[in-house]
Design a protein around this nucleic acid. Structure first.
Lengths: 275, 275
DNA sequence: CCAATAGTGTCTGTGAGACAGTATAAG
DNA sequence: CTTATACTGTCTCACAGACACTATTGG
């Protein structure tokens, strides 16, 4: 039948209602690095990875914490437009590092109806955030990967502690990607436990092969601070000399110094944009 | 208002029609390695990466080539279910390597209506495919990345040649991910030019850090054949000795030999599953 | 002076890159 | 015997890992 139509005619007569439809949302992992005050005036602050969560004020999952997110307007928005809109609403930030993480589509992930959600990761320097967002809070992340494929995660915002477990199962005989499956979680809304774990793992994977770390740094930083952020993301201690050799090509020394720390002052560096 | 409802009551009364909805599809990059006959009886066949495309038999983009794909049934399917259904329909294959690539969501990517598509990559050993699929054809891939961020791609199935250009633009000051933007393409349907380029680049990135290559190998293979597949995917010649040292831990020598090639026969190897 | 971090010099071991050399089949 | 690939031995060089040593501040 359509053989006798031109493409223009076909589109004019097309009835888009013949296919079942669904709603989409985006969820954002807004990640940053926080500093935990040391009591000793000499010692540097302990750094941790942290994530911004909001408390749901309506059903479903009323009063549970969840990732910032929102419904896509299919008529006007791309998923990234939607993500930026949410990000602006929650943090008032624009022009920041944003990367599509994964599209989560478990059939029963939203009890209201079928909703598929594309998750994005945003990396920010938390200190640029002046504004305090109501119903939102930064949680420090402690991630413990156990041997038998269980990831145990603890989120702490100072007054509340959220903990949950996610199973990592190989999706293929030929070792590569994992599926993340919710194990124990009654503190986070939706499937956001799984979203958070896979997002954190993805960022960790990319630390060594890219410069994404600098998205979480202020304009000027000491190499010690930079090393600490790498250490937090990689989850291990680095040795000074080789670390400095490796990042030497990525940073630019300035004349500025950081003083008043109870020990030898250090030079401030900038990220070197050019390759 | 909802403060006075329980979660159960809330869900019962929930009207899902208040949000605008849309359709989703999945598209699959089915990638494999093909052999080009050498005329010399001694020489080994030249290997190339190849991709399975189907010819559209209806509007829009009637008679253009495109990736195999289909509409998601939101009531019953996950995106991966949908992908497997299409894969089974096109190739009759099950239980193969499948990885979610990216969700493509340009507003005008489908002229009929708003459709968001999640692309998957499937890696297969083409020789396991007995069945010839009507309207489908394998295209050998030639990818030329030019310096100024333009990727030029040529697909050839022996009788037809498809070529197009895609621009790669940095999405961030801090060098990391790229956005792929269609440049010159009037031979492929939808935004599948961009989907193909980003899929191929993703697979190339993973060659060195994972074992995905073995998904494209038969059960028994020579190290020469394996090396050729690595060379094709990486786009460069590898030196024998170090290559063999590196993959030694991933393969298992068998007693079988491959003979009749006009030169010294070689041992056949298997993928070693255990870590 | 002490404690803590800043920053540098250098040794060592690993492993990729390079290349040469030997082995062995078909024609 | 020739040709082309199979397979191994070994040298080199770059570089991460490790550690020691010096520098410099606030208290």
């Amino acid at each position: 039948m359509s053989d006798y139509l031109t493409e223009e005619e076909f589109l004019k007569n097309y009835d888009s209602s013949i296919y079942d439809k669904l709603s989409m949302t985006t969820d954002i992992l807004i990640l940053s690095v926080s500093s935990k005050d040391s009591n000793n005036y000499r010692k540097t602050d302990k750094k941790m990875m942290s994530i911004l969560l909001v408390k749901r004020d309506d059903y479903p999952y009323k009063d549970k914490w969840c990732l910032p997110g929102g419904f896509l307007n299919p008529k006007t928005e791309t998923l990234e437009d939607c993500t930026k809109r949410v990000l602006k609403r929650e943090t008032n930030l624009e022009d920041i590092y944003l990367e599509q993480l994964y599209t989560f589509d478990r059939i029963d992930r939203d009890p209201r109806m079928r909703v598929i959600s594309t998750a994005y990761v945003a990396l920010i320097d938390k200190n640029e955030l002046k504004q305090d967002v109501k119903n939102a809070s930064w949680f420090d992340i402690t991630l413990i990967e156990e041997k038998d494929g269980v990831v145990f995660l603890v989120l702490d915002n100072g007054t509340e502690t959220i903990s949950f477990e996610v199973n990592k199962v190989l999706r293929n005989k030929i070792t590569d990607r994992y599926d993340y499956i919710s194990n124990k979680n009654n503190m986070l809304a939706f499937d956001h436990d799984v979203v958070i774990v896979s997002g954190i793992e993805k960022i960790k994977e990319k630390v060594n092969s890219s410069d994404i770390v600098f998205n979480m740094m202020p304009e000027y930083f000491t190499l010690g601070e930079l090393q600490q952020v790498y250490e937090v993301l990689l989850g291990k201690k680095l040795i000074d000399a080789p670390f400095r050799r490796i990042i030497a090509s990525k940073v630019e020394k300035t004349e500025k110094m950081k003083t008043g720390e109870g020990h030898r002052p250090s030079y401030l560096f900038k990220y070197k944009t050019q390759k």
